[in-house]
Design a protein around this nucleic acid. Structure first.
Lengths: 142, 142
DNA sequence: ATTGACTGTAGTAATCATTATCATTCAATT
DNA sequence: AATTGAATGATAATGATTACTACAGTCAAT
């Protein structure tokens, strides 16, 4: 039982470029940013195509979608589960290089009776850079 | 250093009802559902008021906001950090009764140099009920 | 009680991200 | 090369959330 939920997928230039753009960065970009990048290779590409393919890539397990509040979704070209740290000041998303704990999910499957197949762990705070900036200034409000 | 970021907050009937509605359920409702409930007490309440106050409650640490994809945000009247399980079939969100691990965040703060103040852990899969339903049927597609 | 400054509200318009629609194009298969 | 159905580009539509505005309620100091 794979992550597929769709019949035949044709290989298209658009999806290929979208995936390569996504894999070329670790900034966890949103659809708009990807759109701008892809346009440099395929000037006629449509934003709808970006969204459609991102959805396909996420559903087929080739990318991850990260959702934060009412802001646009961000995407990650590394489909292996991993954890993130989000800076609430600069909104950067950092990959965390710590091992993923699948043990907890397995244990929780037993305890709860639910079939747990996945999990997401996100950390929040102020990143190293913004922290320095904050300490240096004496402002108390934004 | 509290979670406030706002001057004086006046106590209003609307915010009071919104919070009590939110605390009366464990279904992690969205703004629309809360709107309908609040309307039964305050028929003239506006959806904008719901959103405005939910934001205030989240910012002041009296509620949690849960974001899943492009769907509407869901809210949790229990402001203490805890973990959730989301059924990808019925979209129900279950509270998990396992202890929160703040140790990891503390350790990661040291390792990464970021100031980590919070974290969210969400599990995904098929819930107990939907699992039964799935097993009983022999369909392979939706 | 009367000001005045200010906060919150209802109602509505505007915004923004995302999805749907549809005629056309194109990749894959024959 | 012809066929076929998935994918595309262009654009419209949707849906969640936020912004705007005129008005009402609250508070504190006169």
């Amino acid at each position: 039982m794979t992550k597929e939920g769709r019949g035949f997928l044709r290989k298209t230039k658009q999806r290929e470029v979208i995936l390569s753009v996504l894999r070329s960065t670790d900034t966890h970009p949103n659809a708009d940013w990807i759109y701008e990048e892809v346009k440099q290779v395929l000037p006629n590409v449509s934003l709808g195509t970006i969204y459609r393919n991102l959805r396909i890539l996420v559903e087929s397990g080739e990318a991850l979608e990260l959702c934060y509040g009412s802001a646009a979704s961000r995407f990650d070209g590394n489909p292996q589960n991993h954890y993130h740290f989000v800076c609430e000041k600069c909104e950067n998303v950092y990959d965390l290089k710590v091992p993923v704990n699948d043990e907890v999910a397995r244990r929780l499957s037993d305890v709860t009776g639910h079939l747990i197949t996945d999990h997401r762990l996100e950390f929040y705070g102020i990143c190293k850079d913004c922290k320095v900036y904050n300490d240096a200034s004496t402002r108390h409000e934004d």
